[in-house]
């Protein structure tokens, strides 16, 4: 059924058992139904226990879970009339980032985000959500278009990072990311970003220098992958767990650090188990954030965004 993560092992046996029993219950034995209910309750309890105290490393795994809803799932669940817009008008269409116009709860928005893909085919197509300069340049073009037409921008962040490649460097990966951040900061329209899975480094912030940064409960956001961090600072990729711990990359940590503004709760057992309520919860949080920002005029929107990033790192006089 599910793709079970390592730490979910106790669940996998239990759920397999429940599944077996369910097939038997067709014979009409009432005791089996009782047994299923009992096991289900046990399974729910374990699930709750497991997910009430996930370690940062476990969150990394959850954030990267292959069944976790991706951009396209949020797009389908939250946006009507989505009309993808393609291309950087210079070199290529980069499918690692999808962008386009759509209607979110009655209002036209520019929706932009990384798409990791859901199977081998689509993962290749979307390059596992790792964008090249063209992807960021498309995002820049679409953000400017939204600005021009006065439409709010919603970005969904889910990337291991910008694509490391020769061509990407030749065509100015760093310049593209820098300009994308600059474009985010300059917008005169509301910009809401939601980290829905992995917020990988420069590839993530390129779309997330926003008025409001939302993070799903089990999303992560960091300057480098824990593996990368471990191999540099611990001189061994095996130390990724320690790195994940030290890096403060969970949504809860980032809320404390002031990098995230809102943590959106996921159903117990996380978004990969219950995508529909997770997607709806993000939709509600986005609607609320947008609703607040729509009240601000263009100058105030920019000021709020600039203030937010300018005050980061200042000695905070808060709890």
């Amino acid at each position: 059924m599910h793709n079970f993560l390592d730490f979910e092992k106790p669940l996998s046996k239990l759920e397999a058992k429940i599944e077996d029993l369910r097939h038997l219950s067709d014979d009409g034995d009432i005791n089996i139904a009782d047994e299923v209910a009992k096991l289900q309750a046990k399974s729910d309890k374990i699930l709750k226990q497991l997910y009430s105290k996930l370690t940062p490393w476990q969150k990394v795994q959850v954030a990267r879970h292959p069944d976790r809803p991706h951009f396209s799932d949020y797009m389908e669940g939250l946006v009507e009339d989505f009309t993808p817009l393609a291309g950087d008008r210079a070199f290529a269409e980069d499918r690692a980032i999808i962008g386009g116009l759509g209607r979110f709860r009655g209002r036209t928005v520019m929706l932009i985000g990384h798409e990791k893909g859901a199977d081998t085919n689509t993962r290749m197509q979307h390059n596992f959500g790792m964008a090249r300069p063209e992807g960021y340049r498309k995002a820049i073009r679409l953000m400017k278009m939204a600005d021009h037409f006065g439409l709010p921008v919603l970005t969904l962040v889910d990337t291991p990072g910008a694509y490391p490649g020769v061509g990407a460097e030749e065509r100015g990966q760093a310049e593209a990311i820098a300009c994308s951040i600059e474009t985010c900061l300059g917008l005169k329209v509301p910009l809401v970003s939601a980290v829905i899975g992995e917020g990988g480094s420069g590839g993530a912030i390129a779309l997330a220098a926003a008025n409001k940064v939302l993070m799903l409960e089990n999303a992560i956001y960091s300057v480098i992958s824990p593996e990368g961090c471990a191999s540099i600072l611990w001189r061994s990729g095996d130390q990724a767990q320690d790195a994940a711990e030290a890096m403060k990359l969970t949504a809860q940590d980032l809320l404390e650090l002031g990098v995230a503004d809102v943590v959106v709760p996921e159903p117990v057992g996380a978004a990969h188990r219950f995508p529909v309520p997770a997607i709806a919860a993000l939709g509600d949080a986005v609607e609320e954030a947008l609703g607040e920002l729509m009240e601000l005029d263009p100058a105030a929107l920019r000021r709020q965004r600039h203030e937010k990033f300018l005050t980061m790192g200042e000695a905070e006089a808060t709890s």
């Binding site: 995230a260 809102v262 117990v268 709890s319």
Partner: peptide, 26 residues
Amino acid sequence: ISAKNGAAKTRNGGNKKNAAPHRRST
């Protein structure tokens, strides 16, 4: 409006177990 994240509207998308979104401690 002036207070950041001021209005606490709770809309949980039918998932009653979950509290409203957590906000920054500030």
